[in-house]
Amino acid sequence: MAANEHKDKKPPNAGGKGGQPLVIAKTLAEAQRLKLDRLMRNPDKPAPIPDRHKQWTPRAPPEFVRDVMGSSAGAGSGEFHVYRHLRRREYQRQDYLDKTSARYNKEQAYLDKVEQNRVDAEERTAKRRKKREKLKLKKLTAKKAKQDSKGDQEEAKSSSSSSEEEEEEEEKEAEDDAEVPSFIMGKK
C-alpha cells in the first residue's frame, strides 16, 4: 500500500527546473508575464532578440526555358498542372513587383512631400527673419533719431535758455523806457 501512495504523489518541483513549479499560461497576458519573469530571474543574462523576418521574394524567372509547352495536340494530362503552377508562380512574381513599385512610389511621394515641407518652412523662416531684421533696423533708426532729437533739444534748450534770458533782459529795459500802457493786448 505504501508503494501505491508513493506512485500517486508527485514531487514538489514536478516539471519545473530548479525547484520552480510548472505553470501553464491560460491567456496570452499570462504567457507574456511568465516570459518576463523568467528573463528577470537572471538580469545579467542577455535577452534573446529575434531577427527581423526577411521579406518574401519570388524566385527569379528562369533565364532559359528548356521545355516550352506548345499548343499541339498530344500534350499529356500532367502538362496542365505544370502550366498552372508556372502561371501561378508568374502571377505571384508580377504581384510582388507591382507591390514593391507601389511601395517605392509611396516612399518617393512621402520623401518629396517632406522635402517640399522643409523648403516651405525654410522660405517662411527666411521671410520672418527678413521681417525681424527690418523691424530691428527700423527700431535702431528710430532710437538713433530719438537720441539725435534729444541731443538737438538739449542744444536748443541751452541756446534757447540763453536767448530767453536775453529776451527777458530786453523786455525789462523796454518796460523801463516805455510808458505804462493803460491796457495790455494779448496778455491775460
Rank of each mutant, 00 (worst) to 15 (best):
R128A: 04
L140P: 04
R87H: 10
M69G: 01
D44H: 06
E170I: 05
R52I: 10
R84N: 13
T100M: 01
H85D: 14
K45H: 13
E122A: 13
E154C: 08
D44W: 08
S72R: 09
E155W: 08
A75P: 02
T100C: 00
E123W: 10
P48H: 01
R103P: 00
E122G: 13
R41P: 00
S161I: 06
R59V: 15
N105F: 01
Q153M: 09
E90Y: 04
S77G: 05
E115Y: 03
T57R: 15
K99A: 04
R88Q: 11
K138W: 04
V65C: 01
E107F: 00
A142H: 09
Y83E: 09
R89A: 11
S77K: 06
E133N: 09
K45V: 05
R84W: 05
I49R: 14
R59F: 07
M40R: 10
L36S: 05
D148M: 10
T125D: 15
A142E: 10
A31E: 15
E164P: 00
K54H: 07
E171D: 11
G78R: 03
Y110G: 00
R59G: 12
P61M: 09
E155H: 14
E167Y: 09
T100H: 02
A145G: 01
K136M: 04
E173D: 08
D67K: 15
N117H: 07
S163T: 12
Q116M: 14
N117T: 07
R93E: 00
A156G: 06
Y91G: 15
F64I: 13
K144Y: 05
E133C: 05
S160G: 14
R103F: 00
E155F: 12
L97C: 01
F64V: 12
Q108A: 02
F80W: 14
D120T: 05
E133H: 07
T125N: 14
V114F: 01
A109W: 08
D120Y: 10
E168P: 05
R129S: 15
K146L: 03
A29C: 05
K139I: 01
Y96G: 00
A75H: 05
E170Q: 09
Y110L: 03
Q147T: 08
E173W: 03
L135S: 04
S149C: 11
K150C: 11
K127R: 08
K138T: 01
P46A: 09
A47Q: 10
N42P: 01
H81Q: 13
R66A: 06
K127P: 00
S163F: 05
Y83I: 03
K144D: 06
R33I: 11
R124V: 01
E123N: 15
N117Q: 12
K157V: 02
L137R: 15
G78K: 02
L111M: 08
E171C: 08
S162T: 07
D67P: 06
S72D: 13
Q55S: 07
S161R: 14
A156W: 12
K106R: 07
L34I: 01
S101Q: 06
A142W: 14
E171Y: 06
Q92G: 11
M40E: 06
A60M: 03
L137I: 06
S101R: 06
